[in-house]
Amino acid sequence: MAFYDKIKWVLGILIIFVLIVTTNLIDRNNFLRVRDSVATVYEDRLVANDLIFEITRAVHQKELAAVEADSLFFLERNGQANTAITEWVTKFGQTKLTPEEAGVFASLKGNLEALKDSETTYVQAGFTQNQELLAHLSRARENLYKLSKIQLQEGGRQIGISKKAIDSVELFTQIEIYFLIFLAIVIQVIVIYQPRKRGPA
């Protein structure tokens, strides 16, 4: 095999190698984006939404007890409800929060602390003055509603990131296939092509 032919082969193989490495790096990057997006949807959105649901349910029980002047709830079960809410709030704080979400979450924590104080006042008043308690419960419910909507929006945004990454992988895969076909044709031409030898002048 002539030296010139060896160079042609080496160049052809190097081009294919560079193409494969480049597309693999791009595919790897897109795969990581999809993986991170799926993990975020589960850890920071579905789990967070479940925590919001649990806190909302506990707040609703408190609201029902306040409306019905259920002294038994506030004397026997409210402490357990507050402990559970504190745990759920702590877990929620450990998820990845957007700036908007962090603001609403800070407001929720403030309202829940104020709620505890108003519950103490309500019990000390003999379960007769529930206006302040109901106001804090209403504000907490509003915070929880906003947080729930944010989970939906952010979940949709992460799914959009995944979809773009997957579309990008599909596009680069198609480009890679077409380019490999083109290279195969070029290499075949280079290998098969034999320049005509000029006859004697």
Results as ranks from 00 to 15, higher is better:
Ala84Gln: 15
Val123Ser: 06
Ala114Thr: 08
Gln129Ala: 08
Arg139Ala: 02
Glu113Cys: 01
Glu68Thr: 15
Arg45Val: 02
Arg57Met: 03
Gly103Asn: 15
Leu133Ala: 02
Asn111Ser: 08
Ser37Asp: 11
Ala102Lys: 11
Ala125Asn: 09
Leu137Gly: 06
Gln80Arg: 02
Gly103Pro: 13
Tyr42Trp: 12
Val123Gly: 00
Val47Asn: 01
Arg77His: 07
Leu46Ser: 08
Leu152Cys: 01
Lys96Tyr: 14
Val41Cys: 10
Pro99His: 14
Ser71Gln: 14
Ile55Met: 03
Glu119Phe: 00
Pro99Trp: 15
Val47Ile: 10
Asn82Met: 12
Val38Lys: 07
Leu108Thr: 06
Glu101Pro: 07
Glu76Arg: 08
Thr128Asn: 09
Glu142Tyr: 03
Ser138Trp: 06
Ala66Gln: 06
His60Trp: 08
Phe73Ala: 02
Leu97Glu: 13
Phe127Arg: 01
Ile52Trp: 10
Leu137Asp: 07
Ala66Asn: 09
Ala140Ile: 00
Leu108Cys: 13
Glu119Thr: 13
Trp88Val: 09
Phe105Asn: 03
Thr121Phe: 11
Leu72Cys: 05
Ile52Lys: 07
Glu113Asn: 08
Leu115Ile: 04
Asp44Cys: 00
Ala69Ile: 11
Ser138Asp: 10
Ala106Ile: 08
Val67Arg: 12
His136Trp: 13
Gly103His: 13
Lys62His: 06
Gln124Glu: 15
Thr83Ser: 11
Gly93Asn: 08
